[in-house]
């Protein structure tokens, strides 16, 4: 009994300690933004490896998700004779939910895991420590540019995901299933509100990008500097990011669209 309480106390203490470290890490990372802004090259390099290199997986996934939405939406809507609303349905689901959520999940798997592994290995090979001894702050030089790149990339990637998804839905709905092209687009135009839908979707993906980049970079920075430690940190990044994205999505949706 006492052993159980002891281990409970120990594990909760260590998770609070970790939360504290993560918070300090975030504060230092954010404070580093002033240092990175005058050096756009650092950011550009990371925007390429974090953002541009994630483009392909986002584009292809967006296309398929849109096509599936076109198929499924058509079968349900046609029961009510409302297949003209297909465009609205596809666009609303993408812009509000699937775009931000799925692109953030893919981003966590593609870029987040890579960031954790990279930072963890830099720690294991003493590169971060070496930088500190060269009087270069590794947070400013390494972490903050990556964090900013993640924050900038995710909303852009989510937007690309949704746009390509709409095209996928149109290809299936209009091209294969014979929905009227004019109705597809005009229903979408009439039903999607810029502030209500598009801006809210972008806010969601900014939040997800913030959380995923934070988790990925912190897990790498906090990893035990061995191969096993880095591999476990990488796993934690993907798992914790997925939980955070889905949990936060519910909260954000309730705040934005629910009348709670």
């Amino acid at each position: 009994m006492f052993e159980f309480l002891e281990s409970l106390g120990h594990s909760s203490r260590s998770s609070f300690a970790k939360l504290g470290r993560a918070t300090f890490f975030l504060i230092h990372t954010l404070a580093g933004i002033v240092e990175v802004l005058p050096r756009p090259n650092l950011l550009m390099k990371q925007l390429y490896s974090v953002g541009v290199l994630s483009f392909l997986i986002i584009a292809i996934s967006g296309l398929f998700v849109g096509m599936v939405l076109g198929l499924q939406g058509f079968y349900i809507l046609s029961d009510f004779g409302a297949e003209e609303s297909l465009g609205l349905m596809v666009a609303a689901s993408l812009v509000r939910e699937l775009g931000p959520v799925v692109s953030a999940l893919l981003f966590a798997g593609r870029a987040g895991s890579a960031l954790t592994a990279e930072i963890g290995l830099m720690k294991a090979t003493e590169q971060l420590s070496g930088m500190e001894m060269m009087a270069v702050n590794p947070i400013n030089r390494i972490i903050t540019p990556r964090f900013m790149a993640g924050l900038i990339s995710t909303p852009l990637l989510a937007t690309i995901f949704s746009s390509i998804g709409v095209i996928g839905g149109q290809m299936v709905g209009v091209g294969m299933l014979g929905v009227d092209d004019g109705a597809f687009w005009s229903q979408m135009q009439a039903g999607i509100d810029f502030n209500e839908d598009i801006i809210n979707g972008i806010i969601k993906s900014v939040v997800f990008g913030f959380v995923v980049s934070w988790i990925a970079l912190f897990e790498g920075y906090d990893a035990i500097p061995t191969s096993e430690g880095v591999s476990r940190a990488t796993t934690r990044t993907v798992v914790n990011s997925a939980f955070s994205i889905l949990g936060l999505d519910f909260i954000l949706t309730a705040l934005m669209f629910g009348d709670i």
């Binding site: 090979t125 003493e126 590169q127 001894m133 702050n137």
Partner: peptide, 19 residues
């Protein structure tokens, strides 16, 4: 501390080169 470190060189066992 950072100003002091600029005047100290350190050679790590692994070299710690930026890969």
């Amino acid at each position: 501390l950072y100003n002091l470190r600029k005047r100290i060189g350190m050679l790590f066992q692994s070299g710690a080169l930026l890969t």
